[in-house]
Amino acid sequence: MLVLEDEAIILLDLELCLEDAGARPLPASDLAGAMGLVEDDPPDVAILDVSLAPGVTSRPVAERLIALGVPFLLHTGDNRVDRDWMEALGVPVLRKPVPSDEVVRRALALLRA
């Protein structure tokens, strides 16, 4: 599972929760890293933090995943981000703070859906 998150501690916590759940995390902390992972070997499912840096969102990754048919959810704490495109994607949006176990559970549920 791809996990894109710019905050190192949250990223690590999500990784550990994924391992607890028996999944293999592919961590990325920025846009380029995530795009690289997606192109190398598309994941089965992904968790994307939305706001990565001032003015940078994970939107390109989201659009690439849609093109590849990979399910994902958005995990965001930023209410400045224009919500329209997030809603237009029609994917689950979890608003931080959400327990990491819960984020992982919801992401894994996408796999089964």
């Binding site: 905050e7 949250i10 690590l12 929760c17 706001s51 704490g77 400045r80 608003r95 931080k96 703070p97």
Partner: peptide, 27 residues
């Protein structure tokens, strides 16, 4: 409004980070 949004984003992140640290200590 901009300041409030920025603050909100940071504070939510801090809550998420604190919970993350607690989880790691628990492990």
């Amino acid at each position: 409004d901009l300041m409030a949004s920025e603050l909100s984003h940071r504070i939510k992140n801090i809550f998420a980070v604190m919970a993350g640290i607690v989880n790691m200590v628990g492990r």
